[in-house]
């Protein structure tokens, strides 16, 4: 009886493994889609966590101020703890983000939205700040952005001016990104209505 049960379980295991093997491609695609989503939501989450930690510090500070005699010690502890928690969360998110991008690189699967060239290989040679910008921008826009900064450096402009211009260009690129997304959504909805 026990033998029959075991063989039944083995059959089920075999079937499960077979299905997993068959569906592995779909699972990987799903994981990469999640990676893409995480990439898109990364900055949003960063801002959210920052805001939440500030809000929690504020709330806990108020609460401790009411119920304890030594407010300043409590507030200091809360600030330190919240800071550590926020840092930890950010670091975790960064790790997850990097790992998922690595996964995409190892698998060599092209995902719409992620750049299709040997971009990840190039990232290794860039500074951390440049690599973040490189990951967020489409390749052609990054090229134009870099060239514009290169021109300023070549013209021997002061460092503060170059930094200021970098922020200005990034804001312009962000604004362009928003406009393009809105236009594309509007165009696709218009096409759907026409169909």
């Amino acid at each position: 009886m026990a033998k029959k049960k075991n063989s039944g379980q083995l059959v089920w295991l075999f079937l499960a493994l077979w299905v997993l093997h068959k569906e592995a491609g779909i699972l990987l695609d799903l994981m990469i889609c999640i990676a893409e989503l995480v990439k898109k939501l990364y900055w949003l989450m960063l801002v959210f966590v920052g805001l939440m930690s500030i809000f929690s510090i504020y709330l806990m500070g108020l609460w401790l101020g009411f119920f304890s005699g030594k407010e300043w010690i409590s507030i200091l502890i809360v600030i330190l703890a919240s800071g550590l928690v926020a840092f930890g969360l950010l670091y975790l998110m960064y790790c997850l983000f990097s790992w998922l991008l690595q996964l995409n690189q190892w698998l060599g699967i092209e995902v719409p939205g992620l750049q299709t060239s040997n971009k990840h290989i190039k990232i290794k040679n860039l500074s951390p700040a440049a690599s973040i910008i490189y990951r967020l921008l489409p390749e052609d826009r990054y090229a134009d952005f870099q060239e514009r900064l290169h021109r300023l450096t070549k013209a021997k402009k002061p460092l503060w001016f170059i930094r200021f211009k970098r922020i200005q260009y990034l804001l312009e690129l962000f604004w362009a990104f928003v406009q393009i997304k809105v236009a594309n959504v509007w165009l696709s909805s218009k096409n759907k209505i026409e169909k």
């Binding site: 060239s117 190039k122 040679n125 860039l126 440049a130 490189y134 390749e139 052609d140 990054y142 090229a143 134009d144 870099q146 060239e147 290169h150 236009a183 594309n184 165009l187």
Partner: peptide, 21 residues
Amino acid sequence: KKGLIVWRWGDEQEVTGGARR
């Protein structure tokens, strides 16, 4: 989107930090 222009990738450039235009 209107089909008035088309594009192609260029080569990697040093001034662009290795990115293609």
